[in-house]
Design a protein around this nucleic acid. Structure first.
Lengths: 340, 340
DNA sequence: GTGAAAGCGCTAACAA
DNA sequence: TTGTTAGCGCTTTCAC
C-alpha cells in the first residue's frame, strides 16, 4: 500500500497552510472560492482522501450510528434497516449493524463493540430473551443517545419507537369477533417483549368489550416459528371445544398454521378465521390471502434514524420525546372474511 | 458528555507510563502479568474504553469491511448480510452497510464514502444499471481488496462469489421441458447483469439440447417487479401461441405472474408450468407451491466475508482465487409437476 | 519489564 | 481570507 496523500502534501504543493486546505475541503465559507477549486483539483489529482479517523479523533465524533437487531433476515427487519440506511446516508452517517440472533449474550457483546466503536448513538431492538438492560447503561452514563424500536425495554427511560401494539391486537381480535367468531385463539411470543404483551392486552380487552370470556386455554405462548405454527394447528385439532377464530402475532407462523389446518380438512375462514401480524409479503400470496396488521417497517427505520440524528444535531431532544407511536393498520383479506 | 478516560489517566493513577498501559491492555507478552491485571482492573474501574480512532489512526487499519448492495429489503440479501455479519463479528470486524437502491449514482456515492471511511476491504453486489466500474478503481489502485458477490462485474479482475447461474438456468428450463413443456417462456432482468445473462444462456442451451427452437418472443426482459409479473401474465394471454412453461428468474415476480394467470382461468401446472428463482419463503407458501432454484444466501455471505478476512489476514490470496462458485439447487414443487 | 518521545492526519482557537 | 499551533489518544521504536 503506497503512501497516502494528506492535506500537508496538498498544502506543500500549493504553498498554503494545512488549515486552509482542511477548510477548503470542508467547504468552509471563509475560504476564497478560487482557492477552494484549486485545492479541490489538486486533491483529486493527488488522489487525496480524507482520513476519517484523524478527523473523528480530533472532533470527538464518529458520525456512526450503531444498530442492534435480533435478526437481519426477516422481511420486517430488512425494511426497517432500509429505512434507517436511507436517512443515515442522506445525513452522511454510517451504520454499523449487528444481530443478536435472539440471544442476550450476543446482544451484550454487540453493545460492547458498539460502545468501543464510539457510535454517536445506538438503535436497538432487543432479543427474544433479554431481561435486563445493564449492557446499555454504559451508553446512558456517557450520554450517548439510545433509542429502542419495535421490541423495546419497558423500564428504560430512553426513547422508544413503536406501533400501538395493544390497539393493533384489539383491532385484530375485534375484527374476528365482528366476523362472527365466538372463540378466538391467540398464538403469541415471549410475553416479556412489549410487542407480544401489548397485543395480548388488546386481545383481552377486545374479548371483554364484546362480552366474550377470556380463557387461558385459548392463549398459546410460542417462539412464533414455523414449527410453532404446526404445533398450534395440531393442538387446535385436539381441542374438545376448538376455536373458530385465530389471531397469530406473526404472519409466517400464521401461514404455516393455516396450511396445516387446511391439510387437516378445515376450511378457512369458514371453519376458522385467521389474522396474522406484520404484513409480510407472504400474507398477500397465500391462499386464502391472510388478513394481517400492516407494520410500517421502513417508516419505523426512517423515524428512528431521523430522531436520533436530529438529537445528535441538537435539532431535537430525544429524551423529552420519550415515545413515538407509528400508525399501524389492519389489512382485511380473505382469511378472515366470514360474514358477507 | 463527561471526559473520557484515556491510557494517560490510567498511567498517572498507577504511576506507570502510557506505553506500559497500552501494552498491557493489548496483552503484550513483555509485560509482567501482575502489572497487566492491575492495569486491567483499574481500566475497568475507571470506565476506560479504547479509542478505536486513535488506534486506527496510528495503526493505519480500520478493521472495518464495507458492503454495498442493491437493496437491503429482499429476503435473499438479508440472508447474505446475516451470513456476512456472523463471520465478520466472529473475526471482530465491523460491517458498514449501504444500499445503492439499484442506482449507479448512489452506488458511486457509497463507494466514495466507503473509500473515505478507509474500509479494509469491500464487498459489492452491483446495482441494476451499473455499467462501468471506475468507481471501484480507487480501491484496486490502493490495493484494497474488492470482492463481488451475486451480481458481479464481468470485466473486473477482482474475485467473485457466484452460483453457476447458467447451470441453474439450464436445469430450470430442462426440468420444464422434461415435464412435457414444448414452449418455455423466460422472464428475466437486465441482461447486463451476469446473473440474468447467464441464466438466459442456460435457458438457451437447454432448449438446444432438447431440440426446441429459441424464439425471441419467448424472452421478456423486465425489472422483475410485481408489476412485471402482471405484465408478463397479460402478455401471455394475448399470445396466439402461448407458452406451456414459464421460467421467471425471481420468485416474487413469478408468484405475481402466477396468480394473475390463475385469476385469468389458467391452471398451474396443467396449462402452464412455472419455475421461479431464489427459493424465497413465498415459494413454499403459494399455491401451488413454486418450483424454484435454491440460492444459498447465508452461505454466500459467509464465504464472501470469510474470503475477504482471510485475505486481509494474509491467510489466503484473494487475487489468485478469482472465482468461487457456490452450489445452487433446483427445488421441485407443485407449480411444475406436470407429468406423473 | 518499563519508559520517553515522536507522530499518525486532522481541526479549531487564536492570531494576523 | 489565510496561517500558527496545539493537541485528539494511541502505538511503537529505541533506549535503559
Amino acid at each position: 500500500m503506497e503512501k497516502e496523500t494528506t492535506i500537508y502534501d496538498i498544502a506543500r504543493r500549493l504553498k498554503l497552510s494545512p488549515a486552509t486546505v482542511s477548510r477548503a475541503l470542508n467547504d468552509h465559507p471563509a475560504i476564497n472560492s478560487n482557492t477552494k477549486s484549486t485545492i479541490a483539483a489538486t486533491a483529486k489529482e493527488m488522489g487525496y482522501r480524507s482520513n476519517t479517523f484523524a478527523s473523528n479523533l480530533r472532533r470527538q465524533r464518529t458520525n456512526t450510528i450503531g444498530v442492534i437487531v435480533p435478526r437481519l433476515d426477516s422481511h420486517f427487519m430488512s425494511t426497517v434497516l432500509a429505512g434507517m440506511e436511507k436517512v443515515a446516508n442522506a445525513a452522511s452517517y454510517n451504520l454499523i449493524i449487528s444481530q443478536s440472533l435472539e440471544s442476550v449474550r450476543k446482544e451484550i457483546a454487540n453493545a460492547k463493540t458498539m460502545f468501543n466503536s464510539r457510535v454517536d448513538g445506538l438503535l436497538v431492538s432487543v432479543a427474544y430473551d433479554t431481561e435486563m438492560s445493564e449492557h446499555f447503561d454504559a451508553f446512558v452514563n456517557k450520554g450517548i443517545p439510545l433509542l429502542f424500536f419495535d421490541r423495546v425495554l419497558a423500564h428504560k427511560r430512553s426513547t422508544c419507537i413503536v406501533i400501538d401494539n395493544a390497539k393493533a391486537g384489539y383491532e385484530a381480535t375485534a375484527h374476528l369477533i365482528q366476523q362472527g367468531c365466538r372463540r378466538v385463539m391467540h398464538v403469541t411470543g415471549n410475553l416479556k417483549r412489549n410487542v407480544y404483551a401489548d397485543r395480548l392486552k388488546g386481545y383481552k380487552l377486545a374479548l371483554l368489550d364484546f362480552g366474550l370470556a377470556y380463557e387461558d386455554e385459548l392463549v398459546m405462548v410460542t417462539d412464533l416459528s414455523h414449527e410453532a405454527g404446526l404445533k398450534a394447528a395440531s393442538h387446535i385439532q385436539t381441542m374438545k371445544n376448538p376455536p373458530d377464530g385465530l389471531f397469530v402475532t406473526n404472519d409466517f407462523c400464521a401461514v404455516s398454521c393455516m396450511s396445516a389446518l387446511k391439510k387437516a380438512g378445515l376450511s378457512i375462514p369458514a371453519d376458522i378465521a385467521v389474522v396474522g401480524f406484520n404484513d409480510d409479503p407472504v400474507s398477500s400470496v397465500v391462499e386464502p390471502t391472510l388478513t394481517t396488521v400492516h407494520y410500517p417497517g421502513e417508516k419505523m427505520g426512517e423515524v428512528a434514524a431521523q430522531s436520533l440524528i436530529n438529537h445528535l444535531n441538537g435539532a431535537m431532544d430525544i429524551q423529552t420525546t420519550n415515545t413515538i407511536i407509528l400508525h399501524s393498520e389492519l389489512i382485511v383479506r380473505d382469511s378472515s372474511k366470514k360474514a358477507v
